[in-house]
Design a protein around this nucleic acid. Structure first.
Lengths: 338, 338
DNA sequence: CTGAAAGCGCTTACAG
DNA sequence: CTGAAAGCGCTTACAG
């Protein structure tokens, strides 16, 4: 690889001049500039960002770090795409990591990102691992934007969805269809999203004077298998629910499987509403009614907040709450007469 | 941020010694090592990878570049996860980019990756853009592995799936069920995957002496809408197909939608086989028979080849062909009597 | 086992 | 408008 020195030699100028040309400094004679540009062309020179970053004070790496639980979860691939597209329009690239909610992986990746001197990091905080992120913010003064989940205690820039409202609307719809025994499967209870969705469920029940029953509340882990198991458990109840509200995409697939395995056919035999919409929700059996989270918009918004913070570290932190939307398809019907 | 110099001062040793401790050199006195480690701890020092890379000859960045058409396509998120997981076990992080098959985006991202001095790049080559990749390989001597698609002309490390065989088996199955008019919807004809899947289709036809009909061959663009449109076109034929072979995941969803809109119910009214399996394929209506590509394994394998090449640039290039698998569910039935 | 010194490829006041 | 020189934060022969 040719270096800046090589270019200087080739063009017969000093390295300072080459650097000026590279940085578009106005005070270089047009003829000199041309000579340098020709030399760059001839040598196929490319400036080393690594060396540049070492030198330039406050030098931006133009790299963002994005750490999500799992890129194979369609919600998070929507988020990732949103981040990436916004970053691209601002000439940023992104380092992507899947943490699997594993503190060890998170630590490794966070370390790598910092060592690579990313300009900032976007992540949904892992419950119980706040310290790490707070250190990032306070000690390392690294811009961080939280997404999907809130960071209890501190309040960095955050973008979340109104989970309470999304859950409330879903459950209210089920109640209006006549359902009184509504099962809910939430994700890990340590997640703020799980708690908020449960709150929305409780509020809807309370508003419509439906008595809550703790047997109808099940905890999963956001994966397919837990959706299957918890639905099974619900169906095994002496008085099983007539409707299901399943709080994430993969668990909903599992729930559907469990329901089918019993020979049940929604929306006739029972009703189901999922959380997270997906391109194939309309092709499921039955076409699935879901609470749509704007994953792509969440990603874009987080990237925007991060770039703003990078540009102005002193700006006040903001909390953006995006609205979910109930997408009604065909998985809900009236409650069977009791 | 504390620098190595700060640590040296704090520990009362030279910077060389600190560096030795950092690099795990055995020839440092245990007591000295302890002093340095304590100083590092006290100062919260983290070594700058940027400075390190500038200095270490042939210094590895421990970053891989991965450029895929679209992270929102589940096949590619499987691939991405495979790459990432393998990279993680070897202490590598990955920069992820979605090219949308857009040469301009590809150029920008490739540039960024190089400037960031990634140690190597994994990508499915964009048709007609071979030059760029060849330059990477020859001029910049940057390790590159191609994935999913072959690079016509040269032969870098490549991992692909046996598309011909996957398509052949799918179509043969349809023929054995009695289908004679089998529609196929391929992706962009410039992609090697599209051509190979079409070849497999033709071979199956030919083996079983079914006359090909060019009206049954439609070209899509791998997206949902084209699956919908091309299926519509097929159904509008004077003599429509009784079975459909749709060559990618998103187009299959579109095809299913088109079929449902006509009030048709597979597997009774027609049959359909998709390409690419997905976690929710079993929950579709009907549960979908598909050719499963091992996306995760493809990603892992590509990452493995890349790291091997980085370690030994002189090793001969290898072409790995992974086998697809026909996953039979319930979207295919006997052809209706003519 | 440890230190002084050179240098990786750039940028940037400081002179001129 | 241009150049000489210092320095970003590290590593590594070379001495001792």
């Amino acid at each position: 690889m040719a270096t800046l020195q090589d270019v200087a030699r080739e063009a017969g100028v000093s390295s300072a001049t080459v650097s000026r040309v590279l940085n578009g400094s106005p005070k270089v004679h047009a003829r000199t500039r041309k000579r340098v540009e020709d030399a760059i062309e001839r040598l196929g020179y490319r400036r080393s960002r690594v060396a540049r970053r070492l030198r330039v004070r406050g030098g931006r790496s133009h790299i963002l770090g994005l750490m999500i639980p799992d890129i194979q979860n369609p919600f998070f691939s929507d988020v990732a795409r949103g981040v990436e597209d916004y970053a691209y329009t601002h000439e940023y690239a992104v380092i992507l990591c899947s943490s699997d909610e594993d503190p060890k992986k998170q630590a490794f990746y966070l370390n790598t990102m910092q060592a690579e001197s990313v300009d900032g990091i976007i992540l949904p905080p892992i419950p119980g691992e706040n310290r790490v992120i707070e250190e990032l913010l306070e000690k390392d003064r690294l811009p961080v934007v939280c997404l999907d989940r809130r960071l209890p205690g501190s309040s960095p820039d955050t973008v979340v969805v109104d989970n309470r409202r999304g859950a409330f609307e879903a459950v209210e719809r089920l109640i209006r269809l006549g359902h009184r025994r509504i099962g809910i499967i939430i994700g890990l209870p340590s997640l703020s999203t799980s708690r908020e969705r449960l709150e929305g469920y409780m509020e809807a029940l309370s508003k419509h004077r439906v008595a809550p029953d703790s047997a109808l509340v099940r905890e999963g882990d956001s994966k397919y298998r837990s959706g299957l198991r918890q639905t099974d458990a619900l169906l095994d109840l002496p008085e099983p629910p007539t409707a299901f509200f399943v709080c994430n995409n993969l668990m909903t697939l599992g729930a559907l499987e469990a329901i089918h395995l019993r020979g049940l056919h929604p929306p006739h035999d029972c009703s189901i509403i999922g959380f997270d919409d997906m391109p194939w929700a309309a092709s499921l059996n039955p076409p699935l009614t879901t609470v749509r989270q704007p994953g792509y918009a969440i990603g874009r918004c987080a990237a925007e907040l991060l770039l703003k913070r990078i540009a102005d570290p002193a700006r006040p932190a903001s909390l953006v709450m995006l609205q979910p939307e109930l997408v009604v398809r065909q998985s809900c019907g009236p409650a069977p007469a009791a």
